[in-house]
């Protein structure tokens, strides 16, 4: 495991004692952590443990009800302006891609830059083509999402997020909905992105990817961070029983 050369000491996301309830159901029970600029954090844990909910609070797709989240110096509160600013800084990739089916791939990518960043159509399209090139799917630009494979769709989705030139990227199980043979093409793109110095929070069960890319692995269970450590320590020397059980179960598969 190589230490990431891009990681800095500046904190970019500060979470302090985050709580979240769905009605009476306590989903996040006080999460306190800090992510540094350029850091790659992999979040894992059993299904229903609150991983998705946690990363969705960071761009306010879910509202946290207690605690503080500060993203790049902006506090995430009820301030409409702050929410909009943070959403521009934070890109997100979903498990189900969530591409807009009525727009071509390239329009999917340019929508944000044109509508939110007020970029000219031309500049946005050039940038989008460059991104698609980087994702290795420049030839799919003018097709509709339904006309390309799942792996390609997910790469379009990554390009869509990157087009906003975010400082942080959130990935919520980006490969879970993919056929096995398509997983690696998406992971390759993410790996490349990691090397470029992007700050990344990745919910995934791809342990190989975690070992190779992550600076830190966080293990969630029942709404708390049970254990967090560098991947080498995490996988080879887990401290908690729940972590051990989880790792042994995941590696079996």
């Amino acid at each position: 495991m190589t230490e990431n050369e891009n990681i800095t000491n500046d904190p970019i996301i500060i979470c302090e004692d985050i709580h979240k309830w769905f009605d009476d159901f306590h989903v996040l029970k006080g999460i306190t952590t800090t992510f540094k600029k350029g850091e790659k954090a992999v979040i894992c844990g059993p299904s229903g443990s609150g991983k998705s909910t946690f990363i969705r609070t960071i761009n306010r797709l879910e509202e946290h009800q207690r605690g503080t989240i500060i993203v790049d110096g902006i506090e995430l509160s009820n301030d409409l302006r702050n929410i909009n600013l943070i959403r521009q800084e934070v890109g997100m990739v979903f498990q189900q891609f969530n591409l807009f089916p009525h727009l071509t791939n390239i329009k999917n990518i340019t929508l944000g830059p044109i509508q939110v960043r007020k970029m000219s159509k031309r500049a946005a399209e050039e940038a989008a083509l460059a991104l698609l090139e980087r994702m290795g799917i420049a030839d799919q630009a003018y097709k509709y999402p339904s006309e390309v494979s799942g792996g390609q769709q997910q790469r379009v989705a990554i390009a869509r997020a990157l087009a906003m030139e975010p400082k942080i990227m959130l990935f919520d199980e980006p490969t879970s909905a993919l056929d096995p043979e398509m997983i690696s093409e998406v992971l390759d793109v993410m790996r490349e992105l990691a090397h470029s110095g992007m700050t990344m929070l990745v919910v995934t069960h791809e342990m190989g990817f975690a070992r190779e890319v992550a600076d830190r692995v966080m293990f969630f269970d029942e709404g708390v961070v049970v254990e967090e450590a560098a991947p080498a320590d995490f996988f080879d020397n887990p401290q908690h029983d729940r972590t051990k059980l989880f790792i042994s179960q995941t590696l079996q598969h």
Partner: peptide, 18 residues
């Protein structure tokens, strides 16, 4: 229209009307 569509649009930073 799946909820994911709204979420994706919000994640890109679109406002409610957009």
């Amino acid at each position: 229209v799946p909820q994911g569509q709204v979420e994706a649009a919000q994640a890109v930073g679109l406002t409610y009307p957009k």
